[in-house]
Amino acid sequence: MTRELPDGPSSVLPRAGVRQAAVAVAASLLLGLPAAAQDGKDKAPAIPFTGDFGLPGASGPRNALPRTQPAPTGAPPGARFLPSPVMPSDSGADDIPTLPDFTADYAFADYQRGFYKSAFEGASLRAARNPRDGAAMTLLGEIYAQGLGVAKDLTQATAWYRRADAAGDRNGTFALAMLAVAESADGAAAGAEEKRKAAVALLEKAAAAGHPLAAYNLALSLLAARRADDVSRAVSLLEKAAAAEVPDAQYALAVMLREGQGVGRDAARAAQWMARAAANGNIAAQVELAIMLFNGNGVEVNEERAARLFAVAAARGNAIAQNRLARILVAGRGLPKDLVQAAAWHLMASAQGRTDTWLDTALKNLTPEERKRAELLARERTDDINFGLAP
């Protein structure tokens, strides 16, 4: 049963309709899943393609490739972890086996530690000695695509990704697919449709080889085509990516289950996947799960836990979470009532365009001193977020 905050006709905590930032190069292929709009104003949530590989104009979140080992101590902030797959070593003395322990693989170890020139030299040596070393070729493509230790060169990156794909490296196939997605983003450009088809074919190949991000992006391409027959397959692909701990896939699967898109509506399973996505750091899932906890949608009502999740997402800069946390602090539901704290979060949400007349009314009687304290808190928290000090 939906639970309402007191003293206001719009005080229900509705589903957030949270929008994840879309990768710009894939914007034309994004899918908007039907969902209840937040406060009746926002459109359905967009689920982004991920794995942009440093392409020009990309602005969305970048998902690292699935981790097979923890990132090494001393790796630069935001460094992407490229797993070093076990290479076959049964075709001759020239093969260079890659051990499961990536620290024994100097090219990959150097890449993870930020020694990009050494990584480039090591990967180049490996590729020269072994024409089947797809992992080294993918690493070279990645270095060229991002301009790490060498001049950025997408032509060279594409060439290395193609060689990696031909050598059977699924990471290279996926990288090549995302380059094709980027090239097909302008639907009006010459050859855009052919490039889109090429991208889908490469995603199919990488997904068949077990690449979880390929499965996720292939699911989105199927859903974007809006053919009824593809929806159930898209759900199956999302399940595979979600099981591999791809947070965006877990969030997307939760939305599909909640809305009954391509699968039977199941609020309990939706909450479970939303919780896994939230635990993996997906801000949209953190906000949605908090709302589900507050309203008892698919889970038992737990206002305290909902408040904690709102606080985490609010501290990471999410305007919806900031707005909901302010309401909770006004009402004293899940957290002790605190109008100064509420005003600070309300100021932060409003600065991002998340206005709320109910909160304006609830906070109108603050004293000048209380308003000054709220403004100071809002500035300090905004600075923390801008400087990357948020949790």
Score class of each variant (00 low, 15 high):
176 L>T: 06
167 A>N: 08
179 L>T: 10
131 P>R: 06
95 D>W: 12
172 G>Y: 14
114 G>T: 14
126 R>Q: 15
158 T>K: 06
146 Q>K: 10
167 A>C: 15
140 L>K: 08
103 T>Q: 15
130 N>A: 03
196 R>S: 15
185 A>N: 15
180 A>D: 13
155 T>Y: 06
108 F>E: 03
124 S>Q: 13
192 A>E: 09
196 R>I: 12
101 D>W: 06
191 G>T: 02
182 A>P: 09
190 A>F: 13
164 A>V: 02
99 L>H: 14
106 Y>S: 14
129 R>N: 10
124 S>P: 06
135 A>D: 09
179 L>C: 08
161 Y>M: 04
93 A>I: 12
131 P>Q: 04
181 V>H: 06
175 A>Q: 06
171 N>W: 05
130 N>T: 01
120 F>A: 12
134 G>I: 02
121 E>F: 03
177 A>E: 11
198 A>T: 09
141 G>D: 07
116 Y>I: 06
167 A>F: 06
177 A>M: 11
194 E>L: 13
189 A>H: 14
123 A>K: 11
110 D>M: 08
147 G>R: 00
121 E>N: 09
115 F>K: 09
194 E>G: 10
192 A>Y: 12
93 A>E: 13
194 E>D: 12
179 L>P: 04
169 D>I: 09
195 K>Q: 14
112 Q>E: 05
116 Y>A: 00
123 A>S: 12
197 K>G: 05
194 E>I: 06
162 R>Y: 07
182 A>I: 08
185 A>P: 01
136 A>M: 08
116 Y>M: 01
136 A>C: 05
99 L>Q: 11
168 G>M: 04
122 G>S: 09
175 A>I: 05
193 E>Q: 07
